[in-house]
Each structure stands twice: as C-alpha cells, then as structure tokens.
Simulated scan of single mutants.
Amino acid sequence: MNLFRIDASILPGASASAEIADAVQAEWALAHPAAPVERRHLGTAPLPADAWALATTAAFTPAPEHTPAQREAGALATELAAELDRADAVLLAVPLYNYGVSQHFKTWADLVIHGAGAATPVLKDKPTVLVATKGGGYRPGEPREGWDHSTPYLRRVLVDIWQADLTVIERELTLAATTPGMEELRDEAARRHDEALRAARDAGRVLADAVARV
C-alpha cells in the first residue's frame, strides 16, 4: 500500500498547509511504518504551465504530426494520472491564493483530467484528505464569506469528477500572527490552528484504518 501526497505551497519552509498535512501523514506512518509515500511538490517544482494546452491540442492533431513538446506533455499527463491510479490513499495540501485555487494545483488537476480521461473516477473509493489553508476568515458571517473560490472547486474535482472518499480539513487565519491589523484575531487563529491539528490527527488515523480494511 502507498500514500500519495501533493503540496502546493510556494513557501515550503513556512507552509501552514504542509504543517497540517504532516500531522495527517504522521498518523499514517504510525500505522503503516513501512509503506512508501510518493510526493509531488507543485509549489517548488511546478509543472510546465503550457503542458495542458500542448496535451489538449495534440488530441486534435494526427499522431505523426505531434511536436516533441506535445508528445512530452501527453506523456506527463499519463504519468500524473498513473500516480493517482496506483495510490491506496491520497493527501493534498492546498493553500488558498488570491481567493482561488493555486495555479500550480490547477495545472496538475487539468493534466490529470487529460491523462485519465475527463469522466474517469481516478480516485473512486480511495480515502483522500484535503488540507485547505486560508490566510483570512471565510466562515459564515465573516467579512470574506463567499470569497473562497478554491475549496468548492477542489470538492467538485475530487468528489464529483474523481469520486474520492474525501475528508476536508480547513485552517483559517493563518496570516493573523504576522499581519498588521489582524492582531485582535490572534487568539482565534491559535484556536483554529489547534482545531485543525486535532482534525488532522483524527483524519490520519481514519485514512490509515480505511486502507488497512481494504
């Protein structure tokens, strides 16, 4: 059995999403110490921004006429889809950037959709944990309610298209500790941080147990 992990933070040394994902993975490792963990760091080793366009246009071009770049893009899409296909469990750490999904994650998802097929449930019945981190507060009644355009997209792809057995862990107010003007939110930010870590440990145990039962 193996765990596949994606990180999309552009700041790995100070990544709030990686911290929460690490807590999930730690619980997985306690239950499956010998199980391999395959990782992609999309934020620090991004996929080529033009790869999806190249792979897509190649689908409308006769194979003998494909350029080397189109062939490479198609092979990359196939490789990315295969990584998910062979995983027994999946862990995704995806920050909210500028109110939307990380561009690096979007490129990855587009390529997987191309490589697997637009309607292929590549995560069907696979236990999957999504860690979604946000610098501000987006809960009902808060000033940025409705501004999170990342998490709904992620749910749509992971659940509705790929049919993952999904658990979502959200941590908000990650910028409160360092951002002027957010000082009064720091106690609440600390509470939400602790809440997310507890949820991560619980999710890690559930992830490990789900795979053990398969």
Rank of each mutant, 00 (worst) to 15 (best):
5 R>C: 09
80 L>P: 09
210 A>I: 02
44 T>C: 15
113 I>Y: 02
83 E>G: 02
126 K>W: 05
74 G>V: 04
177 A>W: 08
29 A>H: 15
158 L>G: 02
39 R>E: 13
87 A>E: 01
65 E>F: 14
130 L>S: 06
84 L>T: 05
54 L>W: 02
98 N>C: 10
126 K>T: 01
124 K>R: 11
5 R>L: 10
75 A>W: 02
88 D>I: 04
122 V>C: 00
93 A>L: 08
162 W>Y: 04
139 R>A: 15
123 L>M: 05
111 L>H: 08
33 P>G: 04
170 E>R: 03
80 L>A: 09
159 V>Y: 00
155 R>L: 09
127 P>V: 00
59 A>P: 03
62 P>V: 02
26 A>C: 12
96 L>C: 00
10 I>G: 05
40 R>W: 05
91 L>Y: 08
99 Y>F: 14
70 Q>W: 03
90 V>N: 00
91 L>I: 05
26 A>W: 07
206 V>M: 10
180 P>Y: 12
178 T>H: 11
40 R>F: 00
111 L>E: 13
82 A>Y: 03
153 Y>N: 07
102 S>G: 04
47 L>A: 08
76 L>W: 03
175 L>M: 15
103 Q>M: 13
187 D>C: 11
135 G>D: 09
194 D>I: 09
15 S>V: 02
200 A>Y: 01
183 E>R: 11
21 A>I: 05
56 T>Q: 15
1 M>T: 12
118 A>Q: 14
97 Y>C: 06
115 G>V: 01
154 L>V: 00
160 D>R: 10
171 R>Q: 15
110 D>V: 08
88 D>P: 06
205 R>H: 06
94 V>W: 10
199 A>E: 02
14 A>W: 13
54 L>A: 08
52 W>F: 15
182 M>E: 10
144 R>M: 15
170 E>W: 03
121 P>S: 02
112 V>S: 10
202 D>C: 01
177 A>D: 15
14 A>K: 13
32 H>W: 13
30 L>G: 12
89 A>T: 00
105 F>K: 02
186 R>N: 13
157 V>W: 10
149 H>P: 11
35 A>C: 13
186 R>M: 06
33 P>F: 03
31 A>K: 07
33 P>S: 10
137 G>S: 11
91 L>A: 12
182 M>T: 00
17 S>N: 12
96 L>E: 04
182 M>N: 02
102 S>W: 03
100 G>N: 13
115 G>I: 01
150 S>I: 00
58 A>I: 00
186 R>S: 14
158 L>N: 01
129 V>K: 05
58 A>Y: 04
13 G>N: 11
145 E>G: 08
117 G>S: 05
205 R>F: 04
108 W>R: 01
120 T>S: 10
17 S>T: 09
191 R>N: 12
95 P>V: 01
78 T>A: 14
144 R>E: 14
110 D>W: 13
119 A>P: 07
96 L>F: 05
145 E>S: 12
113 I>M: 09
62 P>Y: 04
177 A>T: 08
191 R>P: 11
15 S>K: 04
55 A>E: 05
31 A>M: 09
109 A>F: 07
17 S>K: 06
81 A>G: 13
93 A>N: 07
161 I>Y: 15
185 L>C: 07
15 S>L: 02
113 I>C: 11
102 S>F: 07
57 T>M: 13
7 D>E: 09
148 D>R: 04
158 L>Y: 02
214 V>Y: 15
20 I>L: 07
110 D>T: 11
21 A>V: 01
134 K>E: 12
100 G>D: 13
78 T>I: 08
105 F>C: 06
